[in-house]
Design a protein around this nucleic acid. Structure first.
Length: 207
DNA sequence: AAACGGATGGGCT
DNA sequence: GCCCATCCGTTTG
């Protein structure tokens, strides 16, 4: 029997992203992120997200357009990749409506395909002995493991090389955990973090 | 198990 | 000049 390589990956449609950001953040759980690079193909299932809204002080777009947050004001369904803490990048999906400035941060993936490639990309930082659940359990870790680069900023996520594919199963709302976003000071009371309950690959549980 | 601090550099007031 | 949507090794309880 053939394994994952025979599977049909169906891209998300543009309309998926043109909805309220809190809804898209939850509906992205269970979808797949694919990167087809020179090194090979890597695929992860999205298991944790955070929403950033236009009226939300923690959002990069809160103060209006700047050179950095430009992708957030562009068409929904594109990538917003930004540089953080002097050495990492984070990956977001632009949502809702062009001109508004909202996005969803991808915080964790369950590795599905190309695990050796992910390991190689993160090799210097992966703990010994190797633990698969530490490969993509954080926004900067998954960016490294998937080979996402700053040059993917603005990339439409509907087509190769970097794209999103539909979930194979419907995720019941009772399987979605909600809590405060991680690592932010402003608007810390907003419960805009979403994750698959009991999934082994989320970056952190709620307290 | 949790807390802490260093690495490291772009973004924005 | 301070802030920062992080990570990791080390220390502490």
């Amino acid at each position: 029997m053939i394994i994952n390589s025979s599977r049909k990956w169906v891209p998300l449609s543009p309309s998926f992203f043109k909805r309220p950001t809190l809804q898209v953040a939850q509906n992205l759980l269970g979808t797949y992120l694919l990167h087809e690079s020179k090194e090979g193909r890597s695929i992860g299932k999205i298991v944790e997200t955070e929403a950033y809204l236009a009226d939300d002080p923690a959002c990069h777009a809160f103060g209006g357009p700047t050179p950095r947050n430009q992708p957030m004001f562009g068409p929904p369904g594109r990538a917003y990749v930004y540089f953080i803490y002097g050495m990492y990048h984070c990956f977001n999906v632009v949502t809702h409506q062009q001109g508004v400035g909202e996005a969803v941060l991808i915080r964790a993936l369950e590795p599905i395909e190309g695990i050796e490639l992910m390991q190689k990309r993160r090799k210097k930082k992966t703990a010994q002995p190797f633990k698969i659940h530490e490969l993509c359990n954080g926004p900067a870790k998954l960016v490294i493991a998937m080979g996402i680069l700053k040059s993917h900023n603005h990339h439409p996520l509907l087509k190769a090389p970097l794209w999103l594919a539909k979930s194979t199963k419907k995720i019941p709302s009772q399987n979605i955990g909600k809590g405060s976003r991680i690592g932010i000071q402003k608007a810390a009371d907003l419960h805009y973090r979403f994750y698959l309950i009991d999934n082994h690959f989320v970056s952190r549980k709620n307290k």
